[in-house]
Amino acid sequence: MLRCLVIDDERIAREGLLEFIKQFDFLGVVGDYANALESLDLIRNKEVDLIFLDIEMPGIKGIRFAEMIGDLPVMIIFTTAYAEYALKGYKVNAIGYLLKPIFFEDFEKAVLKAKTWHELRHAEDSASEYLFFRENAVSHRIVITDIVYVKSLQNYVQLFLKDKRVVIVHTTLKAIQELLPAQKFIQLHRSYLAQKACITSVDGQFAHVPSAALPIARDRKQLLAELLTQREAGDR
């Protein structure tokens, strides 16, 4: 269950969010506050997974508060009546942004995204050689070294596996990259990650892996060339 905290100086706004939260069995309320600073102990004790945080509040603003807790393992969905804050919200790694008045459909999309992120970050034994990914209602246990490459499709990613399977996960490339060991995977392009050991050659604008040619961003070419040079030296 995602442990939720609601922070908003307006009582009616807090009550509305609390009612929405009750509609989902994977959400639970651990508190609601009119003043963000009063919630610090709860957050620092790692008793919160998800915060619904208003931006424009008396005293400390939501953006500033998010910066204060930026090193803590908590997800933030901003709630505000001011659309111009959206960009600032994403600069502090908010996973969602709800514009007041908040509609249930928008709330549902935001919390489903939070649920996916939570599952990916806390996948069972994620530090081991395998991870769990959910595709629709099915959970897949995937050995990390079986992932040849990852392709981003806006709000989804495709995992291309050595056995030719393709698993589609509702998340971002960045979230996947944070789960995969950096020593084994390299970002080739804003839309592609590849397992280093699966890259067989580089030809012009493309890196070749089994059954695919993946585009290489201009600023990644040198890094990839160094990787292949090191591998060749190690094989000698």
Rank of each mutant, 00 (worst) to 15 (best):
A83Y: 09
I7N: 13
T171V: 11
A225C: 12
L227P: 07
R231Y: 01
P181V: 04
L112D: 02
Q158A: 13
V166N: 07
V202W: 09
K184E: 14
E124H: 07
A36V: 10
A34D: 10
G234P: 03
V138L: 06
H189V: 10
L159P: 06
F103N: 01
V6M: 12
A81V: 00
Q195S: 09
Q158T: 09
V111G: 11
I168K: 15
E10G: 03
A66I: 12
E67H: 13
D235V: 09
F132S: 03
L2Q: 15
K196V: 07
R134A: 08
S126L: 10
T79V: 15
K151Y: 06
Y149F: 15
M68H: 10
K151D: 04
E56Q: 09
K221G: 07
S201W: 04
P73I: 10
A225Y: 11
D219W: 08
F160P: 00
D203P: 11
F20I: 11
G89I: 00
R190L: 00
I55W: 01
E84M: 06
A212M: 06
L161C: 08
V48E: 09
E56R: 03
K115E: 13
E19W: 03
Q187P: 01
L159Q: 05
A123C: 11
G59H: 08
S201D: 08
L193M: 04
C198Q: 12
D71R: 13
L40M: 14
L131Y: 05
I12A: 13
M75Q: 15
T171E: 01
L228W: 05
K88F: 01
M1D: 07
P181Y: 04
H122Y: 15
M75V: 05
Y149T: 06
V157T: 11
V138Q: 05
K164W: 00
F26R: 05
V6R: 12
Y192A: 06
V169Q: 02
Q183C: 10
R218K: 14
R44A: 13
I55N: 02
G31N: 10
A137W: 05
D41H: 12
H122K: 13
N45G: 14
E84W: 05
C4S: 15
T79Q: 08
T80N: 03
Y149V: 06
A217Q: 09
V209S: 06
R3H: 14
S126G: 13
S152G: 04
L27M: 12
L50D: 11
I69D: 10
H170D: 05
L37R: 07
L87I: 15
Y85M: 09
L87Y: 09
E119K: 13
I55R: 01
N136T: 11
I176S: 02
E119R: 14
K46F: 13
E135W: 01
Y156K: 02
E124Y: 08
I63G: 01
L193G: 01
L161I: 01
H118W: 15
E56F: 00
D49W: 14
P101H: 02
M57L: 01
L5K: 11
L87T: 08
A83V: 12
G62Y: 00
L87M: 12
E108N: 05
Q158I: 04
Y90M: 06
E15W: 03
R236Q: 10
D106P: 00
R220P: 07
